[in-house]
Design a protein around this nucleic acid. Sequence first.
DNA 1: GTCTATATTGGGATAGAC
DNA 2: GTCTATCCCAATATAGAC
Lengths: 205, 205
Amino acid sequence: MAIDKEINAEQKIIEAAADIFEEKGFEGARMQQIADKAGINKALLHYYFRSKDLLFEKVFLNIASKIFLKFFKSFNIEGSIFENIETFLQLHQDLLYENRKLPIFFFNEITRNPDLIRKLMLKLEVSNSFQLILKQFEKEKRDGIIRHDVEVSHLLVNIISLSVFPYIGRPIIKEIMEEFDLNYDTFLNERRSMIAQFVINSIKV
Amino acid sequence: MAIDKEINAEQKIIEAAADIFEEKGFEGARMQQIADKAGINKALLHYYFRSKDLLFEKVFLNIASKIFLKFFKSFNIEGSIFENIETFLQLHQDLLYENRKLPIFFFNEITRNPDLIRKLMLKLEVSNSFQLILKQFEKEKRDGIIRHDVEVSHLLVNIISLSVFPYIGRPIIKEIMEEFDLNYDTFLNERRSMIAQFVINSIKV
DNA sequence: GTCTATATTGGGATAGAC
DNA sequence: GTCTATCCCAATATAGAC
């Protein structure tokens, strides 16, 4: 038989499940929908993954790992901290733009089931990766590149807040903007350079 | 009969439903749980609200209206823009601290059903209230109090992002902080003054 | 208005043929 | 491995007594 000429059922299921879960969340997703989207039968879902819970966990960790790895990779850049922040934000925005539904899905699921975070952290070195970033920030502070009163953990949360939140608040921001004949996508695009400027203004000495 | 000595069933249902829906979301909530919490029978839920959908819509609009009104009220303050931002952020943080589960609930529900936003906007003057805030910002810009290159709609979204996001990301932030023996509540408290400082540093001329 | 009992359907899961 | 048919429970909703 041909080597992987046809993508196998297991993979088709994972991809279909990812779409449906992201769209509807765990509670809202239906095994039937996933089967339909994967072009296979409902029974096969259980053959491969035993239960909805197990399928979800597999898919969730898959999605989250992929995105976190890309996220962390975007921080490993030479150059000044200001350039780093700008580059990181550009990549971060690309990532978000291509995965608009991911943030609300991710945060909703970990809120309903915090155990997912622990499992994710076992799979990846989440804490360590964050710590590396924080150490980089600390160094810039010691070197007098950024203000001495900047608390690095807050700085990191601030950067993430500024880039992620507009995607979480999408429905209401979009609706309000449209009332004033403004375009939400244009708004997101403006933020690419704006956020970096906002952060840099705030932390430079 | 005594005038409202005992809170009536309808009100008890609304309060119980608010708790359960906030905790579990629309899809995860169970009519039985709501009835139990309200101390009444399941059938009574349908007697008063006809269906889960209708009960949810009522409760959602209730909760959202209350919070938005408080939110907007906190902006109507005399004084300099910098004082305003500080006062607003203090009140906003109080509001969030007392309603920790609300942000993820709110944003998740409007994502799954954007029609809720339209209904909310019909009930309240959401857009107008935001526009008032933006006009205030514009004036400060014209008066040279804040940098001329600050785009006011982004400024508003930035302020909201910085205060709301840490509540949405609570499970993961908390987990990571605990790995480093840091306390999430302390972190939130530090942000009360930190955010205002961060924003002001960024926009002052 | 409030209850008990029951209808009804939706959806996750399994049995068993092929 | 993949399918059809079916089970079975959970959850929304309704009927009808009081």
